[in-house]
Simulated assay, not measured.
Amino acid sequence: MNVLIVYAHPERRSLNGAINDFTVERLRANGHAVQVSDLYAMNWKALLDADDVRERRSDAPFHPSLDSKHAFENGLQSRDIEIEQDKLRWADALILQFPMWWFSMPAIMKGWVERVYAYGFGYGVGEHSDTHWGDRYGEGLMAGKRAMIVVTTGGWESHYSPRGINGPIDDLLFPIQHGVLFYPGFDVLPPFVVYHTSQMDATRLQTTYDALSKRLDRFWDDAPIAFRKQNHGDYAIPQLTLRAELAEGESGFAAHVE
């Protein structure tokens, strides 16, 4: 299988760097082809702006979605965007690896998503009608591929428990797992989370590697998160609200998981 790892940490000698190296080695030892988009090493441009469109009139107002659509459809995207899209086409699986900063991914990775997920590629795909509201949330160009988050955080596991001060980890990661990965069609595996990183010693690092090995070895066997698909009957269209008889009494993120 082909695996793309999008990695965001400014220091290769960090814990994240060590985990990234281990992940690449383990996947390759299992016979998989691996590419790494090391965003800091690539000096990735995080800002989505008019420079993302080649041969664009400089006096015209910039419209992020419409300019993205025009560039994608006419082969006028910035070359760095095209390269990352080609990597996603090549990949059977995507791993997003990053430290949790301010309850989300680093800005440079958010910029990778904003620029690479162009209109017609990551969104704006498929028919929009009274019965089908675009190819998204379980459908789209990434359908049939798998994805997983590998994330580190300084907080303790209890801090991210159902009653923890930071909020449940599944809730914090929902916008990424459901919105960034499931939206364009990926089957999303449960995340691999490394907590309390300031207390990492050699013994605990080996335990982390052992646990990550098991997840990587089962990457194509483990069941993905059972997010509800948009166009398969669970949601009223075009309102895009969960049908009343489903997840009765529930609301919020959990209602969108079967």
Rank of each mutant, 00 (worst) to 15 (best):
G75H: 10
V125S: 06
D52M: 06
Y119P: 00
I95P: 01
W102M: 09
H70E: 10
R79H: 12
E139R: 11
D170N: 15
A93F: 06
H128L: 12
P99I: 09
S78W: 00
L47A: 14
K45M: 07
E55Q: 15
T153E: 00
S129M: 07
Y119W: 13
R56M: 02
G167H: 09
R89H: 14
H128F: 15
M148Y: 03
W112F: 06
I83Q: 13
D80L: 00
A41T: 13
D67T: 09
N74C: 03
N43G: 14
R57I: 03
G167A: 06
L66W: 12
L66I: 12
L48T: 10
S58G: 08
D52V: 02
M105G: 01
Y137T: 03
P168I: 05
D59N: 12
I81S: 02
P106K: 10
Q97R: 11
L66E: 15
A60L: 15
A60Y: 12
E114V: 01
V150L: 15
G138M: 02
D170R: 14
P99G: 08
A60M: 14
R136W: 02
D49W: 00
D130Q: 11
I95S: 05
V151G: 02
G126D: 04
G111L: 00
N43I: 00
L141W: 04
G120W: 00
S104F: 06
W102R: 12
S58Q: 14
L47M: 13
S37Q: 13
V150K: 08
D52S: 11
M105E: 10
D130A: 10
A93H: 09
G124T: 06
N74W: 12
W133R: 12
T153L: 14
Y117L: 09
E55D: 15
D80A: 03
A143V: 11
W101D: 00
M142R: 08
G167D: 03
K69T: 04
G140K: 10
G111R: 01
D171H: 14
D135G: 06
W102N: 12
Y119T: 15
P99E: 03
V34T: 09
M142K: 05
K145T: 00
M100R: 06
W133H: 14
R89I: 13
V116H: 05
E157N: 08
K45F: 01
I169L: 12
L39R: 07
R136M: 05
R79Y: 07
A143M: 10
V36P: 13
A143Y: 04
V34C: 06
R146I: 01
E82Y: 02
R115I: 00
I165W: 13
M148I: 09
E55H: 14
G111H: 02
R56W: 04
A143F: 02
K69S: 13
V150Y: 01
K145L: 00
S161V: 10
M100E: 03
A93R: 13
L141G: 03
L39P: 01
H159S: 15
Q35N: 14
R56V: 03
G154P: 12
E73W: 03
H159D: 15
G167W: 11
Y117K: 01
S68H: 07
D38Y: 03
L88C: 08
S37K: 07
V34K: 09
S58H: 10
